[in-house]
């Protein structure tokens, strides 16, 4: 007779423990020690596949969430509104600069849309997803079940950040596509005039839009790092979102004060607008490169802060 059966017996009749047994002071029944390790050891799974599965689940959560869908829709509508507005205003000759250039070329709407959105609306949507990432789960209590699953803290944080980065790129691509389609419908297609006064072909114009998407997306990914880091400090996601936006606005204010000019090169918004480097001839690769370095520095710093905080945090929610 196996020990397990004895145990089952005992368990099924808890009231009928022999007196001799009840008098013992040992902490467990002598017969209860199980024989050897259990057979049902989980098979060593492929960690990479499991990582993608969790990321997939995270992406599904993000992109199926109505709130996030609404944000993407709003962002997609802005280039449309700008395009229509410029189309109506196209009669007046007076407009110069980037805005004036849209009337002459459909591709320019993409750059104009970015110049409008990159400073506030895109950061808001990235801050919402990034700020909600950890704090939202903590607030809802689902974080404790994810970690008990066990998702692994470093692994979960990596998935959360990657998800925010992918959302940042989704935001950027949505804006670019909406602007591109609106531009093609409303304005003439043709060679693109750059800020430097020279002209490039439509194909090269599209290539430059692609470079812009890559660059602006990286800038938003840097903001996502801040948002995720702040998200690990609170259980209230709106707090992390608001804190991120406060930082963005403070940076804009600093940029507007001439006495604080020396701080500008260290601020993200300064570099977000530097995508105008693609509109110069030749492309100002030095500016783009330096911007990417700044984004990389922000990502490195804030991801490591998020990691230090999250791996050491007591989950009491």
């Amino acid at each position: 007779m196996s020990t397990a059966e004895t145990e089952v017996d005992v368990r099924r009749t808890p009231g009928l423990v022999p007196v001799t047994e009840t008098m013992r002071t040992v902490e467990r029944e002598p017969g209860a020690a199980p024989a050897g390790p259990p057979a049902a050891a989980p098979p060593p799974s492929r960690p990479v596949a499991a990582f993608w599965r969790l990321l997939g689940s995270e992406l599904g959560l993000t992109f199926r969430r109505p709130r996030n869908q609404v944000m993407l829709a709003v962002l997609a509508s802005v280039p449309l509104l700008i395009g229509i507005g410029l189309r109506i205003a196209a009669g007046d000759e007076a407009v110069g600069g980037l805005i004036g250039a849209v009337a002459g070329n459909s591709l320019m709407l993409t750059f104009v849309s970015f110049s409008f959105l990159v400073l506030l609306l895109m950061p808001v949507s990235v801050a919402v997803v990034g700020g909600d990432s950890v704090a939202g789960e903590a607030g809802a209590g689902t974080l404790r079940y994810l970690l008990a699953a066990p998702a692994g803290r470093t692994r979960l944080l990596a998935v959360k950040y990657l998800n925010a980065v992918l959302f940042a790129y989704a935001v950027t691509i949505v804006v670019a596509l909406s602007a591109l389609v609106t531009g093609l419908v409303l304005f003439p297609v043709g060679p693109v005039t750059l800020l430097s006064g020279s002209t490039v072909s439509v194909a090269e114009g599209l290539l430059r839009i692609l470079v812009t998407v890559g660059y602006v997306g990286a800038g938003m990914a840097a903001l996502a790092a801040i948002a995720v880091a702040l998200s690990t400090f609170t259980e209230v996601s709106i707090g992390a979102i608001a804190a991120t936006m406060v930082l963005v606005i403070v940076a804009q204010v600093i940029r507007a004060i001439p006495q604080l000019d020396f701080l500008a090169p260290y601020l993200l918004p300064t570099w977000w607008t530097r995508f105008d480097a693609v509109l110069r001839s030749p492309i100002d690769l030095a500016a783009l490169g330096q911007g990417l370095l700044v984004f990389g520095a922000y990502i490195g710093l804030f991801c490591s802060i998020a990691w230090a905080r999250f791996t050491g945090k007591d989950i009491t929610s």
Partner: peptide, 24 residues
């Protein structure tokens, strides 16, 4: 503690996905 906007089944799938040893 679950995601209120997901179904019961989707909720369980979510937590299952978090377990690195669980087969999808």
């Amino acid at each position: 503690a679950f995601y209120p906007y997901l179904s019961g089944e989707a909720n369980l799938l979510r937590f299952d996905a978090a377990d690195p040893t669980a087969a999808g």
